[in-house]
């Protein structure tokens, strides 16, 4: 039985696509057959984060229009052959596809792939409804900010109303130093407010931008960055392994670092 998981958040810019690219790649690395589906018609970006933008020939819409077969539209990743991308059409709107059509596409993918990650667009309109139509599980991506948490809560309610019961939380862009200074909600705060099981915490990491610049997901690095380790951990938990949360506590300032700061070094 394939796992069909929608990655969603309500608010835009919290890291849905980054999470989808990294989770998909990490699962593929672990030997799973993974299809990542870009459901953001008109504003696709998953191809960029995976570095596959130059290899798109057909899109999901071409498959539905009967202009190509599904396997022709799928872009197989050369670095990681277990991973394939089903691109969204960039020149069309989110209304150009219906939930029923999305279900048909995903159902066809389940014959080959055992993990299907659907990258949902921001918002709760048509694009969101398309992306949850076939999903059996959901990963809510949020940041420890008031607007992201509020939107996440709304989306959790909509998922429940649409009978998606397995909903889990990824808290992205956590800044441990700010939490320690009581200037940011902690993991416990966010999870307590949203009251859904926690799947993982990704620390804020400059390497995320570097990796998107290159089109290489963090989890492909030789020496994993903090965010890369966190994404790998999330993928392991998703496969049922018990992995403890990363230690994100910050080391106390030593006398020496304070002294350095004193002299502006």
């Amino acid at each position: 039985m394939s796992r069909i998981i929608v990655m969603t958040s309500g608010k835009g810019g919290v890291g849905k696509t980054t999470c989808t690219a990294n989770l998909g790649m990490a699962l593929a690395k672990a030997g799973q057959r993974v299809a990542v589906v870009d459901a953001d018609f008109g504003l696709r970006n998953l191809d960029l984060l995976l570095g596959l933008e130059n290899r798109i020939v057909y899109t999901a819409l071409d498959v539905l229009a009967g202009e190509c077969r599904l396997d022709q539209a799928l872009v197989k990743d050369k670095r990681q052959p277990n991973l394939a991308l089903l691109p969204a059409a960039q020149n069309r709107s989110k209304e150009s596809i219906k939930p029923e059509q999305m279900k048909r596409l995903i159902k066809a993918l389940t014959k080959v792939y055992n993990f299907i990650l659907i990258d949902s667009p921001a918002g709760i309109e048509m694009g969101f409804r398309n992306s949850i139509a076939a999903a059996r599980e959901a990963i809510i991506v949020t940041t420890p900010e008031i607007s992201a948490v509020r939107d996440a809560d709304r989306v959790i309610g909509l998922l429940e109303a649409n009978d998606i019961k397995a909903v889990r939380l990824v808290i992205n862009r956590l800044r441990p130093a700010m939490v320690a200074a009581e200037q940011m909600m902690s993991v416990k705060d966010v999870q307590g407010i949203l009251s859904i099981p926690l799947l993982g915490v990704i620390p804020d990491d400059e390497q995320v931008i570097v990796s998107t610049n290159k089109g290489e997901p963090l989890v492909l690095e030789e020496k994993l960055s903090k965010a890369g380790i966190a994404f790998t951990n999330v993928s392991q938990r998703l496969q049922g392994e018990k992995v403890p949360l990363m230690d994100l506590s910050i080391p106390q300032d030593s006398f020496f670092t304070r002294l350095k700061r004193l002299f502006g070094m």
Binding site: E145, R150, D153, E182, I193, D253, R258, R261, L262, G264
Partner: peptide, 27 residues
């Protein structure tokens, strides 16, 4: 610079309080 900035009021408590109220109404 040596001791770190003077204690700010904790905005973490503000955000939690505001979120709880707004979510109660949203839900």
């Amino acid at each position: 610079r040596f001791f770190g900035p003077a204690e700010d009021p904790h905005s973490r408590d503000d955000v939690k309080r505001r979120l709880k109220i707004v979510l109660a109404h949203d839900r």
